[in-house]
């Protein structure tokens, strides 16, 4: 899940309007940007979609880390295409957020100074080539589990963005699985890389769905508004159930001794991630938080002259056009 622990805002609107708004949502009508909406709904969405957009952007970094070392031309092309897609996802999600009255530059500033978050997963490093397969398979896989239900979310632009994004994410997940499969079936060294990637990324992937339901506040309002469609634990279970047979198919060892099929529940049991580690990452103490934010800040700062230059040129051109008319 690319949006974690999004606090939903309490709302202090006219009860009659609120009831009518809720009735629209209950009838599965889409809310469009020009429609009346409670302030809390608007603010919660900005936070959630914005966080999702930031995740797409920061998510370019761990994958970009391997573009220049991709082992074949084909793998390099696949990875470039994927990273390009992710930047595109960022772009339509920022556009969806802009319809709620906040500009992309404002959102960017909030990311850069730490007021807004991105998914905890991107604060983990990619250390060997199998990580690139594992990221596509596990990280995009987890994102899909979260985003498929969000295609039915109540806010029109978000729902439409999710429909577009999900198609591409499924592609990424399949290509990621194919890349790690090649390694799992490869030389002993390659298999070691694949196992190492799964062992390292398994728990961080589980954390993508956010804290356990018993510790997750604020979700009731978001669920009523259909901004959040399922609980964190439901989605996490779905991910575990889908992924464990895939790990077995690859012939890799399971990354958690606690994984066991539970006949009675009809689900796999699994161990909880270390939630104290999760909260550390959220607070900025993950293995890569500082580097990721520094990289984004540097890109923004170094690019200022480019943005200013292009803007100045566009203004000159517009002025020349006016003068000519």
């Amino acid at each position: 899940m690319y949006a974690q622990m999004v606090q939903s805002e309490a709302t202090k609107d006219d009860p009659e309007k609120l009831a009518a708004f809720q009735a629209r949502i209950d009838r599965d009508e889409k809310i469009e940007p020009k429609d009346w909406m409670p302030e809390g709904y608007r603010k919660t969405l900005i936070r959630q979609i914005g966080q999702h957009a930031h995740s797409e952007i920061v998510g370019q970094l761990p994958e970009g880390n391997w573009i220049t070392r991709a082992p074949t031309l084909e793998r390099k092309a696949i990875l470039l295409a994927k990273v390009q897609d992710e930047a595109g996802h960022g772009l339509y999600l920022y556009c969806a957020t802009e319809t709620l009255g906040v500009s992309r530059d404002e959102l960017t500033e909030m990311l850069l100074d730490g007021r807004m978050k991105y998914s905890s997963i991107f604060n983990y490093p990619t250390l060997n080539w199998a990580d690139i397969g594992a990221v596509g398979w596990l990280v995009d896989g987890a994102a899909i589990i979260n985003q498929v239900p969000l295609q039915r979310t109540s806010f029109g632009p978000y729902s439409r963005a999710m429909i577009r994004v999900c198609k591409e994410e499924s592609f990424h997940a399949r290509q990621g699985f194919d890349a790690i499969r090649k390694m799992a079936e490869g030389t002993p060294e390659q298999k070691k890389m694949a196992q190492n990637a799964v062992d390292r990324l398994w728990f961080p992937a589980l954390m993508m769905f956010g804290p356990s339901d018993k510790d997750s506040t604020h979700s009731a309002q978001s669920m009523a508004w259909k901004i959040k469609m399922n609980t964190n634990d439901e989605l996490r279970q779905k991910f575990v159930d889908q992924t464990v047979p895939q790990i077995e198919f690859l012939g890799l060892d399971l990354p958690d001794d606690g994984i066991k099929w539970n006949e009675e529940r009809g689900h796999y049991d699994y161990s909880d991630p270390d939630w104290s580690e999760f909260f550390d990452v959220i607070k900025g103490n993950g293995p890569c938080n500082v580097d990721r934010l520094a990289a984004r800040n540097k890109a923004w700062k170094d690019g200022a002259w480019v943005r200013d230059g292009l803007l100045a040129h566009a203004r000159k051109k517009a002025a020349a056009k006016v003068a000519a008319e």
């Binding site: 370019q60 573009i67 960022g90 772009l91 890109a299 690019g303 943005r307």
Partner: peptide
């Protein structure tokens, strides 16, 4: 990748 001046 990921370091340019603007998303586009």
């Amino acid at each position: 990748c990921g370091h340019s001046p603007v998303l586009e």
